[in-house]
Computed example of a mutant assay.
Amino acid sequence: MEFIGQNPPQVNHTALEEFILLGFSDVPNLQGFLFGVFLIMYVIILMGNSLIIIITKVDPSLHSPMYFFLRNFSFLEICYVSVTVPKLLTDLCGQNRKISFLACATQMYFFLILGLTECFILTVMAYDRYVAICNPLLYPLIMNSRVCMQLAAGCWTSGIPVHIGFTYLIFSLPFCGSNQLNHFFCDVPPVLTLACGDTFMIEMLIYVIAIVVVTIPFMLIFGSYVKIITTILKLPSATRRAKAFSTCSSHLMVVALFFGSGIITYLRPKSSHSTGTDKFLSLFYTVVTPIFNPMIYCLRNKDVILALRKFLLNKLISNNIFPMAKDSHL
């Protein structure tokens, strides 16, 4: 048949050694501005989450399962954003937007595994709040240090084999035609657009994995909060109800931001995908959500605010910036 002879030469498939990340090259006049914006956001994310890790570690009042998982979550956010933003900054300040085939696969793998870890940690944090509010008498027994360590280890490691195989399948596909990746990092949808042949099975696998690692954790979180809210509404004291809601509202906001953008990106029909929308959604869950997390957890949590004030005051006293504070016991 005639169309068989029109297939791209196989040498193009095997010779592919790199992609070109187009990123935001379509707005050349804004490169400097975007570099400054993303650099500031990256620094805020690093500093904000590092501060949460420090204060939840050094303050004895925050040595509880809730803050143990928050510390894991903050460290995860630092890793998660560092997979994509440094390369984005490099591309914005230079003309070399190339990324090797291996580096692209590595970036995709770590992005996927850290995103999966975030889904699991957010689920475990919801379970922690469920036990604390619905079974307060059994909370110290159920959420003991050994269980917390096991849950955290499971969150960090359980998805490793799945995404090793998934990333291998994607990059085992033949690639032909242009090697220009119209995105700012190696995400699954834009990489698949450059693949030759039938990608139907890979696309179905994406839906299956997304349902397992995104939809199921989201439904578990939703179910936990249905029980939590039901229990809170039964509390006789308005003060206790307000305190219980305040410990949950921060987590709910983060869950809504992360899962909302993730579900829209990976579970919406392929026909509705557009380059601009994909880039915007990717920016939302790779940069915008991580920058909000420390603000949400710090500004909406009185215990964290108190610990932060105490930590900063102790630092100022130790550096003799406020020498009188030591004598006045402030």
Rank of each mutant, 00 (worst) to 15 (best):
190 P>N: 04
170 I>Y: 02
164 I>Y: 14
110 F>T: 08
170 I>T: 07
199 T>G: 00
154 G>C: 13
143 M>V: 01
153 A>P: 00
102 L>V: 13
181 L>Y: 07
161 P>H: 08
179 N>W: 06
197 G>I: 00
95 Q>E: 09
211 I>R: 01
214 V>Q: 06
91 D>A: 14
123 T>S: 12
172 S>A: 13
88 L>K: 06
151 L>D: 01
160 I>S: 04
134 C>T: 14
106 T>N: 06
186 C>K: 04
111 F>Q: 02
192 L>C: 07
106 T>E: 06
130 Y>I: 08
142 I>N: 05
168 Y>P: 00
179 N>T: 13
110 F>A: 08
127 Y>N: 03
206 I>M: 11
171 F>M: 10
193 T>S: 15
88 L>I: 13
192 L>Q: 09
156 W>Q: 08
206 I>V: 15
165 G>H: 09
198 D>F: 00
131 V>H: 05
104 C>S: 15
146 R>K: 15
135 N>Y: 10
120 F>Y: 12
119 C>T: 11
131 V>W: 05
202 I>P: 01
183 H>C: 07
95 Q>V: 07
104 C>V: 09
184 F>H: 05
150 Q>I: 14
163 H>M: 14
93 C>M: 13
198 D>P: 01
125 M>N: 12
206 I>C: 12
109 Y>W: 15
180 Q>H: 10
164 I>E: 06
141 L>H: 14
87 K>I: 06
190 P>M: 03
187 D>F: 06
127 Y>S: 05
150 Q>M: 15
141 L>V: 13
151 L>C: 07
170 I>W: 05
189 P>E: 02
214 V>G: 02
195 A>E: 14
210 A>Q: 10
165 G>W: 12
208 V>H: 03
90 T>V: 09
146 R>H: 10
155 C>E: 09
109 Y>T: 13
193 T>A: 13
156 W>A: 11
103 A>M: 08
198 D>W: 01
95 Q>A: 12
161 P>G: 10
153 A>I: 10
101 F>M: 13
167 T>I: 09
164 I>C: 10
124 V>N: 07
150 Q>P: 01
209 I>N: 13
103 A>S: 09
144 N>Q: 08
164 I>S: 06
207 Y>I: 11
203 E>Q: 15
204 M>H: 04
140 P>R: 02
120 F>W: 12
213 V>L: 11
197 G>P: 01
154 G>A: 14
201 M>N: 09
180 Q>N: 12
195 A>M: 13
197 G>E: 04
130 Y>H: 15
